[in-house]
Amino acid sequence: MTELLQYIVNGLVSGGIYAIVAAGFITIYNVSKVINMTQGEFLMLGGMFTVTFIGAGIPYFVSIILAVLLVILIGAVMQKFIIGQAKTNNPISLIILTIGLSIFIKGIASFFWGKDPYALEPITSNDPINIAGISIAQQSLWVILTVIVILIGLWYLTEKTLLGKKINACSVNQQAARLMGISPAKMMMLAFAVSAGMGAIAGIVIAPLNVTSYDVGTLLGVKGFAAVILGGVGNPLGAIIAGFALGLIESLSAGYISSGLKDAIAFMVLIVVLLVKPTGIFSERSVGKGGL
């Protein structure tokens, strides 16, 4: 029983990160119909910048804030000067452009930081907290707390604020939104900035759990993308639930079947879902069907 609970706790921690990555994908997708393949790199940059700033003698929390701001800036600049400048609106071309950007960012990162891994100190100590025989790392609690805060914040932004309404308007019908005086270009830049910020925070809180290096973003990006597909493209809540589900499937299959097969099993579930319900478990909301 404690074993099962331990696997569930492990799964929720990694699932929470997949959920944040997935939410980042959806935020951008809903506005621009672009799947932003640099999502994983935002996580990597967040962790690596923090390590660098701390190494330069800047206090821990200031480093985190600086790193997040810097990644938000990178996300916004990337949208404004590269993706926004592309001479096409075709989402497929833009997706390929983001794949190129992701490779570019990784290349620059390996040049800057080398290929060696780095360690980041945990927010509080690395001693575990024991509850009924299961051990939870203090940092894992921080991860789960961060995930919840980010997801609630994102929900509040999109559902309860005027800014969120504007973003929603763009995703429903860009032309109508423009007629109402909303600038889709600005909203897209905002979506990139929000996704970059969420990614950076996620990258920072998970780094102390193990190690971080220039290439951690790729796998996290792929897992987050899998969660998006599993939950249904365009549905934020579905993608978040799918993110947690993916983490749980991985952890439980590693625990009870074989640790070598955990990725294979997770992706097998994905394939089966796509065969049975090609739109994903929760399907696409009506969002986006009105326009484009």
């Binding site: 074993e3 193990n210 590693a254």
Partner: peptide, 20 residues
């Protein structure tokens, strides 16, 4: 005995098994 991939981010599940 447990194994992990060189690029794996986390070995939590394997270690939980060894712990038990």
């Amino acid at each position: 005995e447990e194994k992990y991939g060189t690029k794996d981010q986390s070995m939590n599940s394997q270690l939980t098994k060894l712990k038990n």
